[in-house]
Nucleic acid binder design. Sequence first.
DNA 1: TAGATTGTTAATCGATTAACAATC
DNA 2: TAGATTGTTAATCGATTAACAATC
Lengths: 226, 226
Amino acid sequence: MSADVAARRGIPDASVARLPVYLQALTSLAERGITNVSSEELAAAAGVSSAKLRKDLSHLGSYGVRGVGYEVDRLAFEISTALGLTQDWPVAIIGMGNLGRALAAYSGFATRGFNVVAVLDHDESIVGTVVADHAVRPMSDLDTLVREDKLAIGVIATPADSAQDVADRLVAAGVRSILNFAPCVLDVPDDVVVRKVDMSTELQILAFHEQRRSGELDLTDEEVAL
Amino acid sequence: MSADVAARRGIPDASVARLPVYLQALTSLAERGITNVSSEELAAAAGVSSAKLRKDLSHLGSYGVRGVGYEVDRLAFEISTALGLTQDWPVAIIGMGNLGRALAAYSGFATRGFNVVAVLDHDESIVGTVVADHAVRPMSDLDTLVREDKLAIGVIATPADSAQDVADRLVAAGVRSILNFAPCVLDVPDDVVVRKVDMSTELQILAFHEQRRSGELDLTDEEVAL
DNA sequence: TAGATTGTTAATCGATTAACAATC
DNA sequence: TAGATTGTTAATCGATTAACAATC
């Protein structure tokens, strides 16, 4: 089986989720003028073990040289290709509250191969105002965006109680990839991929660890004995 | 072993990461006036299987009634307790760019047991200006915040190239929990917990699936045969 | 060649799932 | 009691790790 086919069918989810981190590390190395790197060094920069890194990369193909390591640019290119970043992906941001406006102004999209083609809001009093060089468009423009701009990814930055409605409209318009910033679970068809970014969830996970930290200081004897 | 001890030592990471989602679903049910729920119903609302839900909850203790289900308020309280959300956690946000200002204005912190005690920036021309009712403070205030406000969690909202420096200062001041919004890997001591929120990473994972989707449409015969 | 490091194998570990005994 | 649903067990599945043969 060619590497291309391997990439297309079975890269494990856990590996796919780490590829962007490797790409980040490689970009950072390239900026510092480093042209070659070993799995040990790259793994350290990415915060994983070298065995895990090599295993992950083995799913893409064989782009290293035994006894030498990896060429930074080459590996970055191969990971970009595997992730589908050789093309630009048209993105729309829905919900122009604080978060939506911050996302619209975020320069990190463009530099990573994502192109914000539109920002939208269902509030008529916001539609038409300008946010980060984009005139805010009405929700009814979604069909047009999918048809004319090949909109592929919808970013939901609305409050939780409108997120499901927005997701339904995105799906109806033909969008199959959704990034959800609203703190709620979305119900979508099987062929739609949803990724969730939720700072409350992350903070709560940190709280768990903080609390466990203080809890460990006063274990009873009985508990320690276990 | 008592449930309390079980909770304190061994809840699997994967389970901990899902508890906030269950809490979200329970809160939503409670708002709709629902007082009792089965594992099947709650699992559906949280987007997981009922077996997984029951397994996760079993790590906290036994708070359901066989043949009946769970009391919504009770279960929400038990999960909150397990996560350490019965107390308020003091949080500081560092970096007052677009994202930092959006986070500072985000109301979701307070409603979920997190208290933004300060916002900071290293840029002297920003220090002293007011963001979401907080006067922006200098980085040198970190020690004071840890001592006087019991600051426990630092949120990094700076560009990638200053994130490591900010992390070092947080750690030096005694902060052991960090939420990193900068697109980079942080190097911290073993006892410091870092969670990362990275929209670029999430978009890249979506891009992978989008690309695979279109790739599947034109598999060659040889590839299909595999 | 000698030294270094990849790519892969096999073993281990942890998470998920299905099934059902316990029990309300 | 009969029906329903939890909490737990055991089997399966997938991910991680260590070790090393392949090879530059």
